[in-house]
Nucleic acid binder design. Structure first.
Lengths: 194, 194
DNA sequence: ATAATAAACTAATATGATTAGTTTTACAAG
DNA sequence: CTTGTAAAACTAATCATATTAGTTTATTAT
């Protein structure tokens, strides 16, 4: 019964590896305990059950995602910054498909750590898009648009939803470019459809 | 031991109700059997286990989604058709969040029924976008873009990912409009970034 | 009527999450 | 160096779910 020397962070890292290598549905306490050389109940000393582990995974994933995005957008402005940010987002989702997937769980109300991690990512996107001179409401709509694009592209790519033999990076670049061009072209007087 | 008179279609409809009302993770054979007044093993007379049920759900969802989209786009052309199609897509995802979610499972290779159901949706999008005069490759990239937008928006909306108190339909309309405007504004000579 | 098929059942097994209660390790205070 | 405490591991047990095997019964066709 020698101690394994586990702690919460070790568990989260091991669970993230499992998620990326085997898929989120394979992140079970049984599998995690086996990977760490311990019995499942021992994990409860460090995490709050499977639900707690998933929340920690989401926070960890959002932090990694934020780091990747903010490093990529560093020093860039305007359209270039949006492209850099977007490529970092999709790159993270590609490299960490399982961890990325955990990122999407809606936070339970009052889960301030998870809300904060998600809020940092959101703020970064808001900031990068603020260069386009939209009013505050327009900027928030634009943020929703970019998030939709980035998540939709990542999810479809990761789930093999893009069957066609066509370069994915070209698709992404065109999509982002079109969206930015669209925001610029529309200007102010394009509300007659609503 | 009176017969319950079940068949595959009844199971799929009941499972879809469960998925929409309780969430996909609550679609268990135990819950489905209870809802139908039967013991879990009895379900195996009609479906190929939980995995088989999920595949059938995905096909059913894609068919419903196709019907909604094609009815909405019927008779419309160009930008109007894209807006109609998009609103039908998001509307379906709103009304059937669980069923919509099952729709996204990547088909196992050789699952021709699921591939066909997904292919019909894809073809419809290709057709609606073909009005924009892009070349074949450009059109396929555009389809990827629109699918990303629609799925990303639906997924984020359904998971409560849009926290801001801002009208969702306005966000969607602006997003689609910007994307279409972007495709048009960019024209042909916009490849200097790749 | 009767035979064959299909649909339900019971019983049993396997996996996984979780809780309760126990043992042992590590460490700090005397 | 002893000893007491807290943390970390354990075993054992329970519950829920999926699944398989084998059985019974209802329906249907001959």
């Amino acid at each position: 019964m020698a101690r394994a020397g586990l702690d919460t962070h070790t568990l989260v890292l091991a669970a993230a590896e499992l998620a990326d290598a085997q898929g989120v549905q394979e992140v079970t306490l049984a599998a995690l305990a086996a990977k760490l050389g311990v019995r499942p109940p021992s994990l409860y000393n460090h995490i709050n059950g499977l639900a707690g582990l998933r929340t920690l995974l989401a926070i960890h994933g959002l932090e990694q995602l934020y780091d990747a995005m903010s490093a990529a957008a560093e020093g860039a402005r305007g359209e270039q910054a949006v492209h850099a940010l977007s490529q970092a987002y999709i790159g993270f989702a590609r490299q960490h498909p399982g961890l990325y997937e955990t990122t999407l769980r809606a936070p339970e109300e009052g889960d301030t750590a998870l809300e904060a991690a998600g809020g940092k990512v959101l703020s970064l996107i808001i900031q990068v898009l603020s260069c386009f001179g939209l009013d505050e409401e327009g900027n928030l709509h634009a943020v929703r648009g970019l998030r939709s694009i980035l998540h939709g592209f990542s999810a479809l790519e990761n789930q093999g939803g893009f069957g066609m033999p066509l370069d994915l990076n070209v698709s992404l670049t065109r999509l982002i470019r079109a969206y930015i061009a669209g925001i610029r072209c529309m200007g102010e007087g394009a509300d007659e459809l609503e």
